[in-house]
Protein backbone atom coordinates (compact mmCIF):
# COMPACT_ATOMS: atom_id res chain seq x y z
CA UNK A 1 0.00 0.00 0.00
CA UNK A 2 1.04 3.57 -0.39
CA UNK A 3 2.73 5.81 2.14
CA UNK A 4 -0.44 7.90 2.13
CA UNK A 5 -2.47 5.01 3.41
CA UNK A 6 -0.11 4.31 6.26
CA UNK A 7 -0.24 8.00 7.18
CA UNK A 8 -4.00 7.67 7.53
CA UNK A 9 -3.60 4.59 9.74
CA UNK A 10 -1.08 6.48 11.81
CA UNK A 11 -3.44 9.44 12.28
CA UNK A 12 -6.35 7.17 13.13
CA UNK A 13 -4.34 5.33 15.78
CA UNK A 14 -3.27 8.59 17.40
CA UNK A 15 -6.82 9.93 17.41
CA UNK A 16 -8.12 6.80 19.12
CA UNK A 17 -5.37 6.96 21.74
CA UNK A 18 -6.12 10.64 22.36
CA UNK A 19 -9.85 9.95 22.71
CA UNK A 20 -9.31 7.12 25.18
CA UNK A 21 -6.99 9.30 27.22
CA UNK A 22 -9.53 12.13 27.25
CA UNK A 23 -12.23 9.68 28.31
CA UNK A 24 -10.08 8.65 31.28
CA UNK A 25 -9.46 12.28 32.21
CA UNK A 26 -13.18 13.07 32.09
CA UNK A 27 -13.90 9.97 34.17
CA UNK A 28 -11.34 10.97 36.79
CA UNK A 29 -12.70 14.51 36.82
CA UNK A 30 -16.10 13.07 37.70
CA UNK A 31 -17.85 13.25 34.32
CA UNK A 32 -19.26 10.17 32.65
CA UNK A 33 -16.58 9.27 30.15
CA UNK A 34 -18.46 6.74 28.09
CA UNK A 35 -21.52 8.91 27.92
CA UNK A 36 -19.39 11.80 26.76
CA UNK A 37 -18.27 9.89 23.72
CA UNK A 38 -21.76 8.76 23.15
CA UNK A 39 -22.75 12.41 23.08
CA UNK A 40 -19.91 13.30 20.74
CA UNK A 41 -20.61 10.53 18.26
CA UNK A 42 -24.31 11.18 18.43
CA UNK A 43 -23.96 14.92 18.08
CA UNK A 44 -21.30 14.76 15.45
CA UNK A 45 -22.53 12.14 13.07
CA UNK A 46 -25.78 10.40 14.02
CA UNK A 47 -28.33 13.02 15.06
CA UNK A 48 -30.76 14.37 12.51
CA UNK A 49 -29.08 17.13 10.48
CA UNK A 50 -25.76 16.07 12.03
CA UNK A 51 -24.19 15.92 8.58
CA UNK A 52 -25.28 19.43 7.86
CA UNK A 53 -24.02 20.69 11.21
CA UNK A 54 -20.68 18.98 10.72
CA UNK A 55 -20.37 20.52 7.26
CA UNK A 56 -21.12 23.97 8.62
CA UNK A 57 -17.85 23.80 10.56
CA UNK A 58 -15.96 21.52 8.21
CA UNK A 59 -16.21 23.64 5.04
CA UNK A 60 -14.40 26.78 6.27
CA UNK A 61 -11.95 24.62 8.23
CA UNK A 62 -11.17 22.65 5.08
CA UNK A 63 -10.46 25.81 3.09
CA UNK A 64 -8.13 27.24 5.73
CA UNK A 65 -6.45 23.86 6.25
CA UNK A 66 -5.63 23.43 2.54
CA UNK A 67 -3.83 26.77 2.75
CA UNK A 68 -1.87 25.50 5.75
CA UNK A 69 -0.99 22.40 3.73
CA UNK A 70 0.41 24.54 0.90
CA UNK A 71 2.77 26.49 3.16
CA UNK A 72 3.77 23.52 5.35
CA UNK A 73 4.62 21.44 2.31
CA UNK A 74 6.95 24.17 1.09
CA UNK A 75 8.69 24.08 4.48
CA UNK A 76 7.23 27.30 5.86
CA UNK A 77 5.44 26.88 9.16
CA UNK A 78 2.84 29.56 8.72
CA UNK A 79 0.76 29.09 11.86
CA UNK A 80 -0.87 32.47 11.35
CA UNK A 81 -4.02 31.10 9.73
CA UNK A 82 -6.06 32.53 12.61
CA UNK A 83 -4.83 36.08 11.99
CA UNK A 84 -5.16 35.76 8.22
CA UNK A 85 -8.69 34.46 8.74
CA UNK A 86 -9.55 37.53 10.88
CA UNK A 87 -7.96 40.06 8.54
CA UNK A 88 -9.77 38.50 5.60
CA UNK A 89 -13.10 38.80 7.41
CA UNK A 90 -12.34 42.40 8.42
CA UNK A 91 -11.46 43.45 4.86
CA UNK A 92 -14.60 41.85 3.49
CA UNK A 93 -16.70 43.56 6.17
CA UNK A 94 -15.27 46.96 5.26
CA UNK A 95 -16.02 46.49 1.58
CA UNK A 96 -19.58 45.38 2.40
CA UNK A 97 -19.99 48.46 4.57
CA UNK A 98 -18.62 50.92 1.99
CA UNK A 99 -20.63 49.51 -0.90
CA UNK A 100 -23.83 49.22 1.08
CA UNK A 101 -26.80 49.64 -1.24
CA UNK A 102 -25.17 48.30 -4.37
CA UNK A 103 -26.56 44.99 -5.72
CA UNK A 104 -25.28 41.76 -4.20
CA UNK A 105 -23.93 40.54 -7.54
CA UNK A 106 -21.42 43.41 -7.41
CA UNK A 107 -20.69 43.55 -3.72
CA UNK A 108 -20.32 39.87 -2.91
CA UNK A 109 -17.52 39.15 -5.44
CA UNK A 110 -15.72 42.32 -4.32
CA UNK A 111 -16.00 41.22 -0.71
CA UNK A 112 -14.44 37.89 -1.60
CA UNK A 113 -11.64 39.61 -3.49
CA UNK A 114 -11.02 41.89 -0.53
CA UNK A 115 -11.10 39.04 1.98
CA UNK A 116 -8.61 36.95 0.04
CA UNK A 117 -6.34 39.93 -0.57
CA UNK A 118 -6.44 40.84 3.11
CA UNK A 119 -5.55 37.34 4.20
CA UNK A 120 -2.76 37.18 1.63
CA UNK A 121 -1.32 40.52 2.80
CA UNK A 122 -1.40 39.35 6.41
CA UNK A 123 0.76 36.40 5.32
CA UNK A 124 2.93 38.54 3.04
CA UNK A 125 4.88 40.42 5.70
CA UNK A 126 5.97 37.33 7.67
CA UNK A 127 6.88 35.82 4.31
CA UNK A 128 9.01 38.78 3.31
CA UNK A 129 10.69 38.89 6.72
CA UNK A 130 11.45 35.18 6.48
CA UNK A 131 12.83 35.31 2.94
CA UNK A 132 14.75 38.58 3.31
CA UNK A 133 16.28 38.22 6.73
CA UNK A 134 15.46 34.70 7.88
CA UNK A 135 13.08 35.86 10.65
CA UNK A 136 11.40 32.72 11.95
CA UNK A 137 7.90 32.61 10.49
CA UNK A 138 6.60 30.62 13.44
CA UNK A 139 7.21 33.63 15.68
CA UNK A 140 6.06 36.32 13.25
CA UNK A 141 2.87 34.59 12.15
CA UNK A 142 2.02 33.74 15.76
CA UNK A 143 2.45 37.41 16.72
CA UNK A 144 0.38 38.31 13.68
CA UNK A 145 -2.50 36.32 15.19
CA UNK A 146 -2.52 38.51 18.30
CA UNK A 147 -2.28 41.68 16.25
CA UNK A 148 -5.15 40.58 14.04
CA UNK A 149 -7.23 39.66 17.11
CA UNK A 150 -6.71 43.16 18.55
CA UNK A 151 -7.46 44.70 15.17
CA UNK A 152 -10.73 42.81 15.15
CA UNK A 153 -11.62 44.13 18.61
CA UNK A 154 -10.79 47.67 17.49
CA UNK A 155 -12.83 47.40 14.30
CA UNK A 156 -15.91 45.95 16.00
CA UNK A 157 -15.74 48.47 18.84
CA UNK A 158 -14.80 51.38 16.57
CA UNK A 159 -15.32 51.97 12.84
CA UNK A 160 -17.82 49.19 12.26
CA UNK A 161 -19.47 49.17 15.69
CA UNK A 162 -23.12 48.35 15.80
CA UNK A 163 -24.56 51.14 18.00
CA UNK A 164 -27.63 49.10 18.78
CA UNK A 165 -25.58 46.25 20.16
CA UNK A 166 -25.96 45.61 23.83
CA UNK A 167 -24.09 42.53 25.05
CA UNK A 168 -20.57 42.55 26.36
CA UNK A 169 -19.06 41.53 23.04
CA UNK A 170 -18.98 44.43 20.59
CA UNK A 171 -19.89 43.53 17.05
CA UNK A 172 -20.41 45.12 13.66
CA UNK A 173 -23.73 45.93 12.08
CA UNK A 174 -25.34 42.87 10.50
CA UNK A 175 -24.76 42.42 6.78
CA UNK A 176 -27.62 43.21 4.43
CA UNK A 177 -29.56 40.07 3.60
CA UNK A 178 -28.67 40.46 -0.08
CA UNK A 179 -24.99 39.98 0.74
CA UNK A 180 -25.43 36.79 2.77
CA UNK A 181 -24.33 33.61 1.04
CA UNK A 182 -26.06 31.29 3.49
CA UNK A 183 -28.40 31.38 6.43
CA UNK A 184 -27.02 31.01 9.93
CA UNK A 185 -26.91 27.24 9.48
CA UNK A 186 -23.83 27.89 7.32
CA UNK A 187 -24.39 25.37 4.55
CA UNK A 188 -25.38 26.53 1.08
CA UNK A 189 -24.60 25.53 -2.50
CA UNK A 190 -22.28 28.53 -2.87
CA UNK A 191 -20.15 27.57 0.13
CA UNK A 192 -20.07 23.91 -0.84
CA UNK A 193 -19.16 24.94 -4.39
CA UNK A 194 -16.33 27.17 -3.19
CA UNK A 195 -14.96 24.40 -0.97
CA UNK A 196 -15.05 21.86 -3.78
CA UNK A 197 -13.42 24.31 -6.18
CA UNK A 198 -10.66 25.10 -3.65
CA UNK A 199 -10.12 21.43 -2.99
CA UNK A 200 -9.80 20.56 -6.68
CA UNK A 201 -7.61 23.57 -7.45
CA UNK A 202 -5.24 22.87 -4.56
CA UNK A 203 -5.09 19.17 -5.37
CA UNK A 204 -4.10 20.13 -8.91
CA UNK A 205 -1.56 22.65 -7.64
CA UNK A 206 0.08 20.12 -5.34
CA UNK A 207 0.00 17.10 -7.63
CA UNK A 208 0.01 18.41 -11.17
CA UNK A 209 2.14 21.54 -11.36
CA UNK A 210 5.83 22.36 -11.27
CA UNK A 211 5.11 24.37 -8.12
CA UNK A 212 3.76 21.29 -6.35
CA UNK A 213 6.83 19.14 -6.98
CA UNK A 214 9.37 21.92 -6.42
CA UNK A 215 7.80 23.21 -3.22
CA UNK A 216 7.60 19.65 -1.89
CA UNK A 217 11.28 19.11 -2.62
CA UNK A 218 12.21 22.52 -1.24
CA UNK A 219 10.20 21.90 1.90
CA UNK A 220 12.12 18.73 2.57
CA UNK A 221 15.52 19.94 1.43
CA UNK A 222 15.89 23.64 0.57
CA UNK A 223 19.65 23.25 0.01
CA UNK A 224 19.12 20.76 -2.76
CA UNK A 225 16.70 22.96 -4.76
CA UNK A 226 19.08 25.89 -4.27
CA UNK A 227 21.88 23.84 -5.86
CA UNK A 228 19.53 23.15 -8.75
CA UNK A 229 19.08 26.87 -9.31
CA UNK A 230 15.59 27.35 -7.87
CA UNK A 231 14.47 30.80 -6.81
CA UNK A 232 13.53 30.35 -3.17
CA UNK A 233 11.81 33.73 -3.38
CA UNK A 234 9.18 32.78 -5.90
CA UNK A 235 8.26 29.47 -4.34
CA UNK A 236 8.33 30.90 -0.81
CA UNK A 237 6.23 33.98 -1.53
CA UNK A 238 3.72 32.01 -3.56
CA UNK A 239 3.29 29.59 -0.63
CA UNK A 240 2.74 32.34 1.92
CA UNK A 241 0.32 34.26 -0.33
CA UNK A 242 -1.77 31.21 -1.23
CA UNK A 243 -2.08 30.06 2.38
CA UNK A 244 -3.00 33.57 3.54
CA UNK A 245 -5.53 34.04 0.75
CA UNK A 246 -7.29 30.76 1.61
CA UNK A 247 -7.53 31.67 5.30
CA UNK A 248 -8.91 35.05 4.24
CA UNK A 249 -11.42 33.26 2.02
CA UNK A 250 -12.61 31.19 4.96
CA UNK A 251 -12.92 34.38 7.02
CA UNK A 252 -15.06 35.93 4.30
CA UNK A 253 -17.28 32.85 4.16
CA UNK A 254 -17.80 32.92 7.93
CA UNK A 255 -18.69 36.61 7.75
CA UNK A 256 -21.03 36.45 4.80
CA UNK A 257 -22.44 33.03 5.60
CA UNK A 258 -23.28 31.75 9.07
CA UNK A 259 -22.17 34.77 11.13
CA UNK A 260 -23.55 37.61 9.09
CA UNK A 261 -21.52 40.11 11.10
CA UNK A 262 -18.13 40.56 12.71
CA UNK A 263 -17.92 39.92 16.45
CA UNK A 264 -14.84 40.60 18.52
CA UNK A 265 -12.95 37.33 19.05
CA UNK A 266 -15.28 35.11 16.99
CA UNK A 267 -14.13 31.52 16.31
CA UNK A 268 -10.89 31.97 18.26
CA UNK A 269 -9.63 28.43 17.52
CA UNK A 270 -10.40 28.27 13.78
CA UNK A 271 -6.84 28.74 12.50
CA UNK A 272 -5.30 26.40 15.05
CA UNK A 273 -7.81 23.67 14.33
CA UNK A 274 -6.92 24.12 10.65
CA UNK A 275 -3.22 23.58 11.45
CA UNK A 276 -4.20 20.49 13.38
CA UNK A 277 -6.27 19.22 10.46
CA UNK A 278 -3.36 19.73 8.06
CA UNK A 279 -1.03 17.79 10.35
CA UNK A 280 -3.50 14.97 10.97
CA UNK A 281 -3.96 14.75 7.19
CA UNK A 282 -0.23 14.32 6.68
CA UNK A 283 -0.24 17.40 4.42
CA UNK A 284 -2.29 15.74 1.70
CA UNK A 285 -5.28 17.51 0.19
CA UNK A 286 -7.49 14.40 0.16
CA UNK A 287 -6.57 13.67 3.76
CA UNK A 288 -7.41 17.25 4.66
CA UNK A 289 -10.95 16.78 3.36
CA UNK A 290 -11.45 13.72 5.57
CA UNK A 291 -9.84 15.27 8.62
CA UNK A 292 -11.79 18.52 8.19
CA UNK A 293 -15.03 16.57 8.20
CA UNK A 294 -13.98 14.75 11.38
CA UNK A 295 -13.03 17.93 13.21
CA UNK A 296 -16.14 19.67 11.88
CA UNK A 297 -18.15 16.88 13.47
CA UNK A 298 -16.33 17.37 16.78
CA UNK A 299 -17.03 21.09 16.63
CA UNK A 300 -20.74 20.55 16.11
CA UNK A 301 -20.82 17.94 18.87
CA UNK A 302 -19.50 20.55 21.29
CA UNK A 303 -23.00 21.93 21.48
CA UNK A 304 -24.41 18.67 22.84
CA UNK A 305 -21.83 18.10 25.54
CA UNK A 306 -23.46 20.29 28.20
CA UNK A 307 -26.87 18.78 27.50
CA UNK A 308 -25.98 15.11 27.56
CA UNK A 309 -22.82 14.67 29.59
CA UNK A 310 -22.92 17.83 31.64
CA UNK A 311 -19.49 18.78 30.32
CA UNK A 312 -18.71 22.34 29.32
CA UNK A 313 -18.43 22.58 25.53
CA UNK A 314 -14.78 23.59 25.98
CA UNK A 315 -14.14 19.88 26.58
CA UNK A 316 -13.85 19.64 22.80
CA UNK A 317 -10.80 21.88 23.02
CA UNK A 318 -9.24 19.37 25.43
CA UNK A 319 -9.84 16.61 22.91
CA UNK A 320 -8.39 18.73 20.09
CA UNK A 321 -5.34 19.55 22.18
CA UNK A 322 -4.80 15.90 23.08
CA UNK A 323 -4.97 14.91 19.41
CA UNK A 324 -2.53 17.71 18.55
CA UNK A 325 -0.08 16.50 21.19
CA UNK A 326 -0.19 12.93 20.00
CA UNK A 327 -0.06 13.71 16.30
CA UNK A 328 3.06 15.85 16.65
CA UNK A 329 4.81 13.39 18.94
CA UNK A 330 6.99 10.77 17.34
CA UNK A 331 6.12 7.25 18.31
CA UNK A 332 8.09 4.29 17.17
CA UNK A 333 5.27 2.02 18.32
CA UNK A 334 2.61 3.68 16.19
CA UNK A 335 5.01 4.08 13.29
CA UNK A 336 5.54 0.36 13.35
CA UNK A 337 1.80 -0.28 13.33
CA UNK A 338 1.45 2.14 10.43
CA UNK A 339 4.41 0.74 8.53
CA UNK A 340 2.86 -2.68 8.66
CA UNK A 341 1.04 -1.59 5.55
CA UNK A 342 4.13 -0.20 3.90
CA UNK A 343 6.63 -1.80 1.66
CA UNK A 344 10.08 -1.74 3.18
CA UNK A 345 11.47 0.87 0.79
CA UNK A 346 9.07 3.60 1.78
CA UNK A 347 10.32 3.66 5.36
CA UNK A 348 12.98 6.27 5.82
Amino acid sequence: MSANFSAIIRAAVFIVIALVLCGLIFEIAGYPGVQTFDAIIDGAFLRRNALEHALRWALPLFITATGVVISFRAGYFNIGAQGQFYVGAICAAFVAEWLKGYPGAVVVPLCFAAGMTGGALWALWPGLLRLRSGADEVITTLMGNFLAGLLLVYVTAGPLKDPSGSGQQASSRPLEAAYRISTSNGVSPIIIGIAIFVGLAMWFLVNRTAFGVLSGLGGRNPTMVKWQGASVWRIGLASFLISGALAGLAGTIELMGPNGRLAGGFLPAHGFTAVLIALVAGLSITGTAIAAFFFGGLASAALYLPVIAGLPSAAIDIINAAIALFITAKSRFVDRIASFWRRPWTTS
Partner: peptide, 14 residues
Protein backbone atom coordinates in the same frame (compact mmCIF):
# COMPACT_ATOMS: atom_id res chain seq x y z
CA UNK B 1 12.98 15.91 -12.59
CA UNK B 2 13.92 19.08 -10.68
CA UNK B 3 16.19 20.32 -13.43
CA UNK B 4 13.47 20.10 -16.08
CA UNK B 5 10.80 21.59 -13.81
CA UNK B 6 12.91 24.62 -13.01
CA UNK B 7 13.02 25.49 -16.68
CA UNK B 8 9.25 26.04 -16.67
CA UNK B 9 7.01 28.58 -14.96
CA UNK B 10 5.83 27.55 -11.49
CA UNK B 11 2.20 27.23 -12.52
CA UNK B 12 2.99 25.04 -15.52
CA UNK B 13 1.01 21.83 -15.51
CA UNK B 14 3.05 18.65 -15.40
Amino acid sequence: SVGQLLGRPLHAAI
